[in-house]
Design a protein around this nucleic acid. Structure first.
Lengths: 116, 116
DNA sequence: GTCTATACCTTGGACCGCGAGGTATGTCGC
DNA sequence: GCGACATACCTCGCGGTCCAAGGTATAGAC
């Protein structure tokens, strides 16, 4: 949360990314890990040790719902975004946008960049 | 360091910002804290508890040089960027750029954004 | 003489990310 | 049938960053 007294202003990106991916379609953890790697052009490598805890926390908070599904003999846990999760995504996305703009502003020498 | 095996990929923003400000002109710690707040449009609030340790670490690494100066009866520690520090800034700035682009790519649905 | 602003600094803990490790099952080659 | 590899889930504990809180000291205002 960048705006008012921001504790740990850089955190929460994994969460944001997870919510973004699940907004499009139902996915399972292992798949998410690879999707992040792919879609970021191999730049972001957010491992399973990050993703699974994030998924559990989001579900506990009611931002995600899960259901087991067996595909080709493999048991998977698929996640979907709840309305609460969608709202959370929008907040986080806005925060990120604000933050990135602020950093860019400083890098550009203090000229206020009018949002992207 | 976003690219190869990235430990703590989101970190280092305070350092990056400090180097950016000092690249323009000599500044002292207290001044830097306020400059960040201002230039970021009050979004970034990186307190003294962050800045001073960063300045000390950068100086210890030879990225900055300091000199005491008394202005109007007030003793200040002014910092300037060394060539090593400049190089470090360029690396960090590039890393940040890459990272921000990667996150934006994911937020945009996996279409590779051709750098900004 | 007290209060506010300036200016420096350190410490403790909180939090997050992450590697490393652990379990289990399916598939492919030999 | 057996080993190696990919899939798929999970947790623990370390480590690094950030940050609030607190501490010192001087200058200027009222």
């Amino acid at each position: 949360m960048p705006l008012p007294g921001n504790p740990n202003f850089m955190a929460g990106v994994p969460e944001l990314v997870v919510l973004r991916l699940l907004r499009d379609r139902e996915m399972y953890g292992y798949e998410i890990v690879q999707a992040i790697r792919e879609q970021s052009g191999e730049v972001l490598s957010v491992g399973e040790g990050v993703i699974y805890p994030v998924l559990h926390a989001l579900e506990k908070d009611g931002a995600l719902k899960s259901r087991r599904k067996t595909v080709g003999g493999r048991s998977r846990v698929y996640y979907t975004v709840t309305p609460k999760g969608l709202k959370r995504f929008e907040v986080l996305a806005g925060d990120w946008s604000t933050l990135a703009a602020a950093i860019r502003a400083v890098l550009n020498g203090g000229q206020h960049v009018p949002a992207v």
